[in-house]
Design a protein around this nucleic acid. Sequence first.
DNA 1: GCATGATCATGC
DNA 2: GCATGATCATGC
Length: 457
Amino acid sequence: MTTSILPYDDTNPKDIERYAKLLIGKRFKEIGNNAEKRGGKGKLGQYLEENYFNYKLNSDSRADFYKAGVELKTSPIKKISKNRIRAKERIVLNIINYMEIINEKWADSSLVKKNYLLLLIFYLYEEGLGDLDYIIKIVTLWHYDEKDGEIIRQDWEKIVSKIKNGKAHELSEGDTLYLGACTKGVDKSSERNQPFSKEKAKQRAFCFKQNYVNSIIERLNDSESAIKDISILKKKSFEEIILERINKYVDESISNLHKELNISIKPTAKNYCAILASKMLGLKKNKIDEFEKAEIEIKSIRLKHNGNPDQNMSFPAFKFKEVASEEWEDSQLINIVEKKYLFMVFQYDKDKNLYFKGGFFWNMPHKDILQVKMVWFKTKKIINEGVKIWDAKGKTKNNLPKKSENRICHVRPHTSNKENVDILPDGRTLTKQCFWFNGSYLKEQIKESQLDNISTK
DNA sequence: GCATGATCATGC
DNA sequence: GCATGATCATGC
C-alpha cells in the first residue's frame, strides 16, 4: 500500500478532471518524473496512470479511479485539415465475458459499472513521431447523454441476445450502432468458449465506434453556426448578415452589454471578444463555426476618447531562427497579413467607460502587404547579420525595425518577462519578439471602414 | 502624448 | 509553465 498523498482528490471526479486538464499541451515524455520512460502501443494510458496519476495499475472490473467511479481512456485524434480533427481509433471499453454477461442486466452490467463516467484524454497522433512525443490536446469528463444512452443500451441488448442465441462467434461490429463488439487480441489463443454453442468465439470487447467517438469530439467543440437559415444567404453576403447583427449594439456601454447579453466573463479574458461576438450573434456556444472554417480571427481595438488606438496590436512571438531561414511565401507573418479579421472597436469616454463602437471585417490591402514584406525582409537581414543589442537604463535595446521606421508594422518584445528569451542564429539570446501592427495604421483602417460614430474629441 | 521596452492575465 | 491577447510604464 502506498501512503503518499495524491495531488488530487481521487474520490471527486471534478478534481480528477481538474488535475488531468493540467496535461493539456504537454507531450507524454514531459510528464511525471519517472526516470524509466516507456511508451508503446496501447500503453499510453498506463503511462499516465503510473507517471502522472500515481495509482497502481488494475485490470479488474473496477473503474480506474474506483473511488470516484471514473475510468481513464486515452485515445488518439488526427488532424484532417488545418482546423478539423477526427478520432483516429475506436475507444475500447471492457472485454466481453461471454459466460457471465448472459446473467447481467443493463443497469448494473459490467459495462455500465466500469464505464459510466469516463475521463477522456485525447492526444494528437502525428506520423513519424514516437509515442511519447505526442501532445495531449483534449481532457474532459464524459458521460453519454440520455438519448445516446438508450441507443447504447439497445446495442448492448443486441450483443447479449446474440450470445444467448449461441452466436458469439458471429458477432460483428456492424451489428450495432454506437456500441460495438470489436475483436481484441489477434491470434488463435485469444479464442474463447461461449455458453450456448460448442463453437469457439473470438475474444471481443465493447467499444465506442470510431464515428461515435467523432461525434463526442464534435460535441466537445464549442462552436456553433451563426447562420441557421440558408435562405438569407441568397439575399445578403455572410459578412453583411454578421455585421448587421453585431452593429445593432453600437454605442452601448460594455456594462450594459454584459447585462443585456448575460455575459459574466471578464473583459481581460483572452476569448472575451470572441464570446462577446458570439453572444451578439445570439449563439449559445462560444465559437462561431463559419469563422473557424474561414479562419477569421476576431481582434479588439480600443480607442482613447480622442479616437486614437490605445495600443498597437500584437501577434504571436516568432522564433529568430525561423525568420532567419524561412522564405516570405511560407513565413508566419504572411499568414497573419493574408488572414481575414473581424475587428471589434471599442472606445473609452472621458470617464473611462468603455463603449462598443462597431465591428468590421478587414484584410490587408495588397499594397500594404508588400510594405510588410519589406519590414519582414529587413528583420530577417538584421537577424542574419547579427542583431545589435545594448543596454540603456536597464532596458534591453535592439536595432530591429521600429514603429517610427514603417507606416504599418514594427518589431517589439512579446513575452511574459524579459528573461523569457529566444536563441539567435549566432547563439546569443534576446527577449522574444513579435510583429505588431502600428496603432496609427489601425486608425487609418478604422477611418476607411464604415464606422462613422467614433468620437475624435 | 507617443514610442518602445516590459509585463499582466488567462487559457491550454 | 509557456503562449498569447492585451495592457502597463517610462522617458523624451
